[in-house]
């Protein structure tokens, strides 16, 4: 399970919305292959019936009363946008 091909790297890059140059595909395939080889050692452990830990503390939903609080003003929320029209973020035409 530790082998990874260039095709798989290109597929994963697509999922992650990354365009890789041919040289990058080469390097990433090598490096990620090495890392997958290393992490393969986890398969030595029998983890049947071991619960998963996704959080180091007991993570519970945090509820609060549904009251209106102040939030970021529109102008401030837009000020870092690469392109905006004073009202919304602007992106290339979708349809």
């Amino acid at each position: 399970m530790s082998e990874i091909t260039k095709n798989e790297i290109e597929y994963v890059a697509r999922l992650a919305r990354l365009d890789l140059q041919p040289q990058e595909v080469e390097t990433m395939t090598n490096h990620i292959g090495l890392m997958l080889n290393y992490v393969a050692k986890l398969q030595e452990l029998d983890t049947t019936d071991i619960p998963i830990t996704t959080h180091s503390q007991e993570a519970n939903n945090v509820f609060r009363e549904d009251v209106v609080l102040s939030s970021l003003e529109r102008e401030n929320a837009l000020k870092n946008a690469p392109q905006q029209n004073g009202d919304s973020f602007v992106v290339p035409r979708i349809i």
């Binding site: 399970m1 992490v39 986890l42 398969q43 452990l45 983890t47 071991i50 619960p51 998963i52 830990t53 996704t54």
Partner: peptide
């Protein structure tokens, strides 16, 4: 094989 396994090992 990866994320779930790692999260179980985190418990260990």
């Amino acid at each position: 094989a990866y994320y779930k396994k790692a999260s179980q090992v985190r418990s260990l």
